[in-house]
């Protein structure tokens, strides 16, 4: 098995970096930053869904925790953005380890249900906790000065900051997936009994994957908060959990670039239809249905099958 980066992956990566560098010339940078935050979230989610084979139906809990903790530390504790985002990520990661510790004891549908129930509890916690301002959310979060010196208030400076986080997170996930750890994870997904009989402690692998995924999801949430200056209940809601599932499935679960493609499509669809009220909901629903009935592998998954690539 070739663990090196393949030529098609290098091409796709080059295309992605070129897009990040050139697209702000033609598209609104805030829109692109939103896409990158959700793309990182979807890639993190895919680590659990695609590579560990576990359907988490509560990833918004981590995204939202990142958003709230990132917002609170930046606003109340006046931390610099990179520290606030790391705090958000660390809290999300710890929460992920706790949730994962409970959830990995069960598989399949039970796993999904436990994560759903824990995420709903997290939602009600943030609804009632004193520091979150309930329905209003934490507003007017300052973007601050990166490393204490570089003001992120100009959109383009913020854009490069977010790009760096996105590419860093993406590279990290790529390394995880292509490491010996990632291979064991895929082995467990394919046949847990066999992996166990070879001496791998399946639950430890799943737990670590879940924790890493939660950490990166929280980083994405905290970054999004810094872009828009707000953390709200919608970040921890069930809608966000199903949105990230939609992104991963649409792009292709268990593929490297799939979640990014999914995030681009879902966020674009949202902003195109934003003025048309409930049509967003209908369109999302139709995409869900089409995904399940027509292309279960997702867009990138189908491309991989057709071109025999491993994007």
């Amino acid at each position: 098995m070739n663990l090196g980066i393949s030529r098609s992956q290098i091409l796709a990566l080059a295309l992605m970096v070129a897009c990040i560098a050139l697209l702000p010339l033609v598209l609104y940078p805030v829109f692109l930053m939103k896409v990158m935050c959700y793309a990182l979230f979807a890639c993190a989610f895919n680590l659990v869904l695609g590579y560990a084979g576990l359907l988490s139906f509560g990833h918004a809990a981590f995204f939202g925790t990142g958003a709230y903790v990132g917002a609170w530390t930046a606003k109340a504790l006046m931390l610099t953005p990179e520290l606030a985002i790391l705090c958000g990520g660390a809290t999300g990661g710890l929460l992920g380890m706790a949730f994962g510790f409970l959830a990995i004891r069960r598989q399949g549908l039970d796993f999904a249900m436990i994560t759903l129930a824990l995420a709903q509890m997290t939602y009600f916690f943030y609804l009632q906790a004193p520091f979150t301002n309930g329905e209003d959310g934490i507003q007017k979060v300052p973007r601050g000065d990166a490393l204490g010196v570089l003001s992120l208030e100009p959109d383009m400076t913020m854009y490069w900051f977010v790009s760096a986080i996105f590419l860093g997170g993406f590279g990290f996930i790529y390394r995880i997936v292509h490491s010996p750890f990632g291979n064991v994870l895929k082995g467990i997904r394919e046949n847990e009994a066999r992996a166990s009989s070879l001496g791998y402690r399946a639950n430890s692998y799943k737990l670590i994957a879940f924790g890493l995924s939660a950490f990166l999801a929280a980083i994405a949430g905290a970054t999004k908060t810094h872009v828009f200056g707000i953390a709200t209940l919608s970040d921890v809601s069930l809608e966000t959990s199903s949105l990230v599932l939609l992104m991963a499935l649409l792009g292709g679960k268990g593929t490297i670039f799939g979640p990014i493609v999914g995030a681009i499509l879902v966020v674009s669809m949202e902003s195109k239809l934003a003025t048309m009220g409930s049509w967003v909901m209908i369109a999302q629903g139709i995409v869900f249905i089409a995904c399940v009935l027509l292309f279960r592998r997702g867009i990138v998954g189908e491309i991989n099958r057709g071109l025999r690539t491993s994007l």
Partner: peptide, 23 residues
């Protein structure tokens, strides 16, 4: 098929129906 697909399909259907009534 995996339970996940039933879950996702019915979730999508729920969005379509709710969106249609909202419209």
């Amino acid at each position: 098929l995996d339970h996940m697909y039933g879950l996702v399909l019915t979730l999508g259907l729920a969005l379509v129906i709710e969106g249609a009534f909202r419209n």
